[in-house]
Simulated scan of single mutants.
Amino acid sequence: MPIRPSTAARASTGALRAVDIDGETASIEPFDEVSEPPVTHPGHRTPALSGVEAVTGASGGERRAEEDRADIDAKIDGGRAAYDDASADAEDRANEPLSPDDPLAPLPFNPYKGNRGLTRAWHAMKNSLAGFRVAIREESAFRQELTLAAILIPCGVLVPVEPVSRVLLLGSVLLVLIVELLNSSVEAAIDRISLERHELSRRAKDLGSAAVMVALGMCLMTWVLIVGPLAVRWVKAML
């Protein structure tokens, strides 16, 4: 029958135990003192805790449960506070006014845009007439084109052509005036910003001049194609 390990004398730092290998004691190793649970036999009753131990254990469990609940409540309150802060920040950003450089920012208040109905039409007509006076007084190119229009518009009205051709003749002349007015407005806006020589300013003015040239070419082409054959017949009839 195997030999049970013998227990050595306990030291202050631990105890010694005998290790039984193949029925013989191989060595003695130190080990820490470990309290083993008592062995219960059938019919053995676990001794009841005393009143002080029961109260102490119950109060300790309740204290730990209260601490756990307090930690959970603190985490919930922290999450609610963070959510409220995030909602307040989002609301502040939504209510924050847009900067002037933002394309969605509202335009500054213009007192001249508050008119409605006939009042607005009256002010628009006065502003348009003022624009014509300024163009005639300040823009020599517009004066030259206006003189050309004063000659071509009566000719377009009197020339014996179909209504569609008449509209093309008159529209091509008016298109030249429209493009010239737009070109003059672009030049005035650029001069309002700065009078210094700049590549972008030069490019904008050149593009406006190119638009005027295209309108003039279209007008010339329309008159040559529509009035040219009539003029040739008139010349042949006179000869």
Rank of each mutant, 00 (worst) to 15 (best):
A74G: 09
A74S: 09
A74W: 08
A74P: 01
A74E: 04
K75G: 11
K75F: 12
K75D: 14
K75Y: 09
K75E: 15
I76D: 14
D77H: 10
D77Q: 11
D77N: 15
D77P: 06
G78M: 07
G78P: 00
G78A: 15
G78R: 09
G78Y: 03
G79W: 12
G79T: 15
G79E: 15
G79F: 13
G79P: 05
G79L: 15
R80M: 14
R80L: 09
R80F: 05
R80T: 09
R80Y: 14
A81D: 14
A82V: 05
A82F: 03
A82P: 01
A82M: 07
A82E: 14
Y83V: 10
Y83E: 13
Y83R: 13
Y83T: 12
Y83C: 02
D84M: 14
D84R: 14
D84A: 11
D84I: 08
D84V: 11
D85R: 14
D85F: 11
D85C: 05
D85Y: 01
D85H: 08
D85V: 10
D85G: 05
A86D: 06
A86Q: 10
A86V: 01
A86R: 06
A86K: 06
A86L: 08
A86N: 12
S87R: 09
S87Y: 06
S87Q: 13
S87E: 08
S87G: 03
A88L: 13
A88R: 06
A88K: 13
D89P: 01
D89W: 02
D89Q: 07
D89K: 05
D89V: 07
D89T: 09
D89Y: 05
A90S: 12
A90K: 02
A90G: 03
A90L: 07
A90D: 08
E91Q: 05
E91K: 06
E91L: 10
D92L: 06
D92R: 12
D92I: 06
D92W: 07
R93M: 02
R93L: 11
R93A: 05
R93G: 05
R93V: 11
A94Q: 03
A94G: 03
N95M: 04
N95Q: 10
N95P: 00
E96C: 08
E96I: 00
E96N: 05
E96G: 01
E96H: 09
E96A: 05
P97Y: 01
P97F: 00
P97W: 02
L98W: 08
L98F: 12
L98A: 13
S99E: 04
S99I: 03
S99V: 03
S99Y: 03
S99W: 02
S99C: 07
P100Y: 03
P100R: 04
P100I: 10
P100E: 06
P100A: 10
D101A: 13
D101M: 04
D102H: 11
D102Q: 04
D102F: 06
P103R: 06
P103F: 04
P103D: 00
P103M: 04
P103T: 04
P103E: 00
L104H: 14
L104N: 09
L104T: 13
L104S: 11
L104A: 14
A105D: 08
P106T: 10
P106Y: 03
P106L: 09
P106M: 07
L107C: 09
L107F: 11
L107E: 14
L107M: 07
L107V: 10
P108N: 08
P108F: 02
P108I: 02
F109G: 05
N110H: 12
N110L: 14
N110R: 14
N110W: 06
